[in-house]
């Protein structure tokens, strides 16, 4: 990256003078920090290995708290994981949930489906697209198909430009 910046700087263009020294400092400093972190982690891994020397290591099921026989149909899914975050950001990301209420003591079947709407997609149409289309509908008379008047527009544009340029 720095080579590229140097090459651009060598051209001597006015807009090519990007100060690359600060970037170099930042990346060097971040690399130093990351190296330190890596060193600390490796040291701790060694320490961990030392602590585990000759220790009994058992294997068992995940701690379930009375919930020891889950099936594949009982899962903590991605939607469950995101649910609380999505609920908080509801104003910015409208959430639609399709979930019929559970009926009866022994409900047979139910389903849950959620969809996050794009707020732009939802409001762009009614707030921006429709007004603009309406405005341009009103201006439709400019485009009437008479070629002579079109040439007149061009002449008019040139005359107007003459005043400004």
């Amino acid at each position: 990256m720095f080579l590229a910046i140097k090459a651009v700087a060598a051209l001597g263009l006015d807009y090519g003078r990007i100060p690359f020294e600060p970037f170099a400092h930042y990346s060097a400093a971040i690399t130093l920090g990351a190296t330190l972190f890596l060193a600390a982690t490796l040291l701790l891994l060694a320490l961990r290995r030392m602590f585990y020397q000759g220790k009994p290591i058992g294997h068992g099921g995940t701690w379930g708290c009375g919930f020891t026989q889950p099936t594949a149909r009982m899962q903590y899914t991605g939607s469950s994981y995101a649910a609380s975050i999505l609920a908080f950001f509801r104003p910015a990301a409208p959430l639609e949930e399709i979930h019929p209420p559970v009926a009866g003591l022994f409900p047979r079947e139910t389903h849950y489906h959620s969809h996050v709407h794009d707020i732009v997609e939802r409001h762009l149409n009614c707030l921006v697209v429709v007004p603009i289309v309406r405005l341009f509908d009103r201006l439709r008379w400019i485009q009437h198909g008479d070629i002579h008047l079109y040439i007149g527009y061009i002449l008019l544009a040139i005359v107007v430009l003459l005043f400004f340029v």
Partner: peptide, 26 residues
């Protein structure tokens, strides 16, 4: 003490505590 590991865990589970302590020490 020794440790008991869940049979569904992988190396990520063992890496968690080490990275956790490593970052805060850094």
């Amino acid at each position: 003490k020794g440790s008991v590991y869940s049979s569904s865990t992988t190396f990520v589970f063992k890496l968690g505590p080490v990275v956790n302590l490593g970052t805060i020490v850094t």
